[in-house]
C-alpha cells in the first residue's frame, strides 16, 4: 500500500470527523495536520472518532487492523498519531 492510498483513507476519516467539529475547528486535509498533543484541534472524543473511522477504513479496504486505540498510541504525543504524516508513515512501514 502506497502512502498516497493511506493518505486518501486518512482524509476520508478527517471528513467524517469534521462533520462533528465546529466550522472553525475543523481539520485540514494536509500531511502537516496535527492529530495529538500540542497544536492538535482534537479533543479525546474527536480523536477516538477519527481513529475508529480510520481503522475501519483500513480494515475494509486493505484487511489490515492496527490497534491504534491502545494507550501506547493514544497516550504518546510523539508517536504515530502525532500528525497525518506520522500516521501515514507508520501504516506504510507496518505494511512493509
Amino acid at each position: 500500500m502506497e502512502q498516497i492510498d493511506i493518505l486518501t483513507l486518512i482524509y476520508a476519516s478527517i471528513d467524517e470527523t469534521n462533520r462533528q467539529l465546529p466550522v472553525d475547528g475543523r481539520l485540514e486535509k494536509s500531511p502537516d495536520t496535527l492529530l495529538l498533543g500540542d497544536g492538535s484541534q482534537l479533543d479525546s472524543l474527536s480523536l477516538i472518532t477519527f481513529v475508529v473511522a480510520f481503522e475501519e477504513a483500513l480494515e475494509q479496504t486493505h484487511g489490515a487492523r492496527y490497534n491504534l486505540l491502545d494507550e501506547g498510541f493514544l497516550g504518546n504525543p510523539e508517536g504515530p498519531l502525532k500528525s497525518v504524516r506520522t500516521l501515514a508513515t507508520f501504516v506504510e512501514q507496518m505494511r512493509g
Binding site: E16, R19, Q20, S44, L45, I48, T49, V52, A53, E55, L69
Partner: peptide, 14 residues
Amino acid sequence: AARMWYAAKVPYRN
C-alpha cells in the same frame, strides 16, 4: 460501534 463503545462509551455509529 463496538470499538467506540469500549473506547468512549458511545454505543452507535456516527
